[in-house]
Design a protein around this nucleic acid. Sequence first.
DNA 1: CTGGTGACAGTTTTT
DNA 2: CTGTCACCAG
Length: 756
Amino acid sequence: MARTTEILAGLNRAQQEAVETVDGPVLVLAGPGSGKTRVLTHRVAYLVREYGVPPWQIVAVTFTNKAAREMRERLYHLMGDQFRQLTIGTFHAICARILRREADAAGISPRYVIYDRTDQLSLARRAVRDLNLDDKLFRPQAMLRRISKAKNELITPAEMRPATYRDEVAWRIYERYETLLAENSALDFDDLLVRAVRLFRQNAEVLAGYRRRYPFVLVDEWQDTNMAQYELVKLLAGERANLFVVGDEDQSIYAFRGADYRNVARFRKDFPHACVILLERNYRSTQTILDVANAVIARNIQRQPKRLYTEQGGGCQVTAIEAYDEQEEGDIIISEIQHLVARGQARLGDCAVMYRTNAQSRPIEDAFVRRGMPYKLVGATRFYARREIKDVLAYLRLIHNPYDGVGLSRIINMPPRAIGQKTVGGLVKWAAEMGVPVYAALQVLAEAEEAEESEGKVRAPLGTRAKRALLAFTALIEELSRARQGLNLLELLDLVLERTRYATYVQDGTEEGQARWENILELRSVARDYADLPPETALTTFLEEVALVSDVDDLDEQVDAPTLLTLHAAKGLEFAVVFIVGLEEKLLPHSRSMDDPEQMEEERRLCYVGVTRAKERLYLLHAFRRTLYGESEVREPSRFLADIPLHLVKGWEEKQAARQPSLGLEPGRFLGRMRASVASFAAAQRPKPSAVERPSPTALRFRTGDQVQHKVFGQGVVIESRLSGDDEQVMVAFAGVGLKRLMASLAPMDKVATTD
DNA sequence: CTGGTGACAGTTTTT
DNA sequence: CTGTCACCAG
């Protein structure tokens, strides 16, 4: 636990000021790598320690679970167990909790379920169909975007002012969508924010309660807030705002999701007396890298000028390379990484490859696999989006809230139990006629059956066989619901897996089935963490947390391999060595952003975010040719490259000498040089990842770096192998497939080549 | 219920 | 060139 002096020690002047300015609103404009998390956490510790603020009066809001977790960890180090009394969480998690507690006042069911994107989509699809509209003309996806946008801006269907026919239709779909949500006792992600705002606006008493409870409000990543979030914070902070927000306009890259970097400027307007603190000193990168970043971002007009600097000196020049095509782009990266590792200048895990679009990862992955280099891919299918996980969760959701119609239709015939589309259609229609949720209709059916007077009273449009199947399903759900009381979460989950026969259904003997089963086992291990809670709260909390988390914690930190990720995913991370690929017109900046100056500024910020991830070395790559949608095309270097002063880039001085104004990097020259180095490394180096990998028992069949051939997934590289029970669990990166965890004894997989 | 087919879109996606 | 999804045949 730190003393007060320690809390301030090691902070620079600006950081100290940010920590110590306790009264009134504070806006911290924190450049990348300027220690904003540090400021945030130290301020919390300072409030408690120096100011005697009870920890439970402090709420710190983040955007991601990861950021929240990080903050908690750091605060644990600063203030010990007291950190448990702090409220730290994402906007969505905090709102979800408030809504659960204030369900009555908010006018929602305390058992509401949270719909994710997939659930939302099926609901939107239903809304479109309910209105007898063509879902080709009014694509649910597009409708959903509009709905989400409206919600982010706190516009209800009643407030929509349709200007065109399309608007009008979208508005009616929005209305229907809202009704459907209510019928399912469900809230979507946006609702969590919107409903919390509405609650605060409409219920002065509740609002006053929360203001009293949380006199100290801190918000991270302020530039990423949307209108609903801004409003929520403003309401919570109140007039005598003790509000502390940290952000950076230049790192706002989520406008497409409703984030509005203008909220930074708006804050100054809404809180004219706010203390504004600028953090420009960077603790991450070399001055050269910062100069590149400054040069790129300086061209944005809509920003407060800011200039990053470091006191740690120049560092080496950045490298700009033109590859012939995307294949060579990948090869060049690998050669360079091998080169750096061989000279001891970096470890594999220090390197990252960043791209604008996910599609770009494919050729890069291919190159990695071809060259036998392991890698980690960020952003493959998210754990909780996997089919089997969604299915199992749908059962739990249904036990929790049987009116969740999306969950119901997901699993009513999963595993197959003879309830076909026709049956479901008839059931849904019948429920609609009675004006009750689908599950309520099932219950009616069951009761009538029991009373044995079904003929006269209940006239469901269903055949006997269909009815029998539905009754069996209803009995199953009822049984599970009853069983819930006496079981802890893990036992309940196991019962679901057994009674629904989902476990046997998934384990069909195929490799894919095995993988899916392993995912379910992973879910089991998550559920185990909730096993100690009382049955009622366990399920509620579990479902809520699981709905608000996109991925389980990855242990990836431990794997020493380069990371492949989008520029968006790179935000908040740092790497010693960064490769940004595809620096080409129409890719970065993206073609879809070319005709809108606002969006162009965002592309520039995206580039800026990428550049500022690098600590020591930065490589900027583009291809002379690129194959997109099956068509090979000659490409032009990105305009962002042209903004970089020549002296910062290796080899560009010559251009300066030649007074060459344009940036057209002649392919021949750079390519030639690079090709030579590719060849020499390939020859000189039998790559030896074993030097940096962690030791593994010799009894195991696979080792990190081994190339394998899998029957289904094709070629891959072993990233990690460890003992699991008496079997060997192997993590393999497959080209175009991503990471797979396999059991050595089961997987139809052979070693093709080994590392040494 | 599975598997095949054809149409279609393909930027980013913290929750 | 892919991956996805709706739809239909067996």
